[in-house]
């Protein structure tokens, strides 16, 4: 008898992919994991959209532009359990440190007045998602079911969380695994 594998989707929004790298630090435990898990939409698979019966969505990064909002809403719609992974997903993190500076000043500094800028112009291609005026944590946009703190959360955090969930237990992180840094 074969049991249906649990579908996991992952994405990095306004993040640095550090949480995904940390996830890959599961190393040989990934072999055990794929016995029970099938990856759906994820930078690890290149699948572009979530299938409509995803079980777990792991979201790295906060929400900084219009595309992030659309992707996050797709994940919320397609995933039964949505997980905010890492500091940026939980409180906006490093990208949210721009929240004290106006968007205009940010763009001017990066593309117009910054040291070493050549051919200064603000990017405005229709292909580029529009920036939000502030970077927001995920829970300000959609309902989040679980939070994995850390910058990044260690592989042990992913392991503890996923093994709890796969075993049907309410996930609980021991003290050693709760870190905001």
């Amino acid at each position: 008898m074969t049991t249906k594998k649990v579908k996991v989707a992952t994405v990095s929004l306004a993040g640095c992919f550090g949480c995904h790298m940390s996830f890959l630090d599961l190393d040989e435990r990934l072999v055990d994991l794929v016995e029970h898990v099938q990856f759906d939409r994820s930078p690890l698979t290149d699948i572009e959209h979530c299938s409509d019966d995803c079980d777990i969505g792991l979201i790295e990064g906060g929400v900084c532009n219009s595309e992030n909002v659309h992707v996050l809403r797709e994940f919320r719609k397609q995933c039964k359990i949505l997980v905010a992974v890492g500091a940026c997903a939980i409180n906006g993190g490093l990208p949210a440190m721009r929240n004290h500076i106006s968007l205009e000043d940010c763009l001017n500094e990066a593309y117009m007045d910054g040291i070493g800028v050549e051919n200064p112009q603000i990017p405005s291609d229709v292909e580029l998602p529009l920036l939000l005026d502030k970077v927001h944590p995920l829970h300000e946009v959609v309902k989040i079911d679980y939070f994995l703190p850390g910058c990044p959360p260690s592989a042990d955090v992913f392991w503890a969380f996923l093994t709890d969930l796969l075993a049907g237990r309410e996930p609980a992180l021991p003290y050693e695994l709760i870190h905001f840094d």
Partner: peptide, 19 residues
């Protein structure tokens, strides 16, 4: 502040941020 949060098993900030 962080240690109290750890002690209370706090993993998220729940409220909208003031920034």
């Amino acid at each position: 502040l962080q240690a109290v949060a750890y002690h209370l098993n706090m993993t998220d900030n729940h409220f909208p941020h003031f920034f």
